[in-house]
């Protein structure tokens, strides 16, 4: 043991401002706040649905406030960022080996994107958006 061990000063609260890649990491972390709040909104909506038509219609009306609209737009932007970053790391998180080779990143990420588009279009169609 050296008598003066080297202590690297890293601020626990501002460390991520040092490098753009840390900032991108934190931007992804922040998406959990928006998706978490949105999950609670879904839960409240389901609760109102179970209480009856008037309560549910009131919930839908409450969604139309400016605060709600701004929040939903932000939540959509963060959710999209979360999806893109999640699919892009999928080849690293779930490497699929075929014979001697690993499946190319493009194939693993690409199949996620294809599934994502199909599922989203299906839900929009099922919900009667078009």
């Amino acid at each position: 043991m050296s008598r003066n061990p080297y202590v690297r000063e890293v601020s626990p609260t501002t460390w991520f401002f040092r490098m753009p890649r840390y900032m991108r990491y934190m931007a992804r972390e922040v998406t959990s706040i928006f998706i978490g709040i949105f999950t609670v909104i879904m839960l409240v909506g389901l609760a109102r649905l179970s209480e009856g038509q008037v309560e549910y219609e009131n919930f839908l009306a409450a969604l139309r406030s400016p605060v709600s609209l701004v929040f939903l737009l932000l939540a959509l932007a963060f959710a999209l960022y979360n999806s893109f970053t999640w699919f892009n790391v999928a080849p690293k998180a779930m490497p699929i080996q075929v014979g001697e080779e690993l499946m190319p990143d493009m194939v693993v990420a690409g199949s996620h994107y294809v599934l994502w588009v199909i599922l989203s279009v299906f839900v929009l169609f099922w919900a009667g958006v078009f």
Partner: peptide
């Protein structure tokens, strides 16, 4: 699941938020 489905659910709720809830809502 969140990556695949949450954005499109937010879009559905957004339609309701601008006063045009899709029929499924």
């Amino acid at each position: 699941v969140v990556s695949l489905i949450t954005p499109v659910i937010i879009v559905l709720i957004l339609f309701a938020a601008i006063g045009r809830p899709p029929s499924a809502l």
